[in-house]
Simulated assay, not measured.
Amino acid sequence: MTLSAPAARAVDLRVEPVDNVLEHVERSLQAELDRETVVRKRCSVGARTDRRTWVRIERRGLDKIGMQGWNGTECAARLEGITQPGWRGCVVWRDADEPVMWRADETDLLPSAPVGNAILSEDPKLQDSWWQAFNASLDALAAQDTRRLATPDTETITQALVTEAVRSISLSDDFDTTVERWVPAHADLNWANMTAPRFSLFDWEDWGNAPRGLDSASLWGSSLAVPALADRVRHERRHDLESRDGKLMTLFACSKVLGPDAHPQDPRMEPARRMAEQIIAELQAD
Rank of each mutant, 00 (worst) to 15 (best):
Q84M: 14
T163K: 06
D63S: 13
V45C: 09
W87V: 04
V233T: 05
A210M: 09
S200R: 07
Q84N: 05
K256I: 10
D240K: 00
D286M: 14
R212L: 11
T2N: 02
P114K: 02
L189W: 06
F134T: 02
E282Q: 13
R103S: 05
L13N: 05
R59M: 08
A160K: 10
M1R: 13
A133C: 05
P17V: 02
A47T: 13
L138D: 03
L79E: 03
H263Q: 14
M67Q: 07
K125Q: 10
A276V: 10
R103T: 07
E36R: 12
L13I: 15
A142V: 04
E282H: 07
V11C: 03
E180F: 11
T250A: 01
L251C: 06
A113I: 07
A5S: 13
M275L: 08
G208A: 09
D34L: 11
M67L: 14
S129K: 09
M249V: 01
Q127L: 13
V55E: 01
D261P: 00
A143N: 08
E180H: 10
I57R: 02
I279A: 01
D286C: 10
S28G: 02
L22P: 06
A10E: 11
I82Y: 02
C90S: 06
R148D: 02
D286I: 15
R60E: 01
E74V: 09
L138N: 04
L189N: 04
T250I: 13
R268Y: 14
E98D: 11
D108M: 11
K125Y: 13
F202C: 04
V257E: 10
A133L: 03
D128N: 09
W220V: 01
D63G: 05
T154P: 06
V179E: 05
L201K: 05
R94I: 08
R27D: 07
V183T: 06
W182Q: 02
C90V: 01
R167A: 09
E242C: 00
R56G: 08
L62S: 07
S172D: 00
R268S: 12
R232C: 08
E26R: 05
R52Y: 12
R27G: 03
E74S: 06
A118T: 09
W93N: 00
Q144N: 03
A118Y: 05
I280Q: 02
L141D: 00
L110F: 12
I82L: 05
C75I: 12
G246F: 01
V38D: 02
A185S: 13
D188F: 02
L13E: 06
D173W: 13
V233L: 04
L258T: 06
R42V: 15
I65Q: 03
Q265A: 14
S112D: 06
A133F: 01
S129H: 15
N190I: 04
V55C: 03
W130C: 01
P197I: 07
M67F: 15
R148K: 14
D63V: 14
N117A: 12
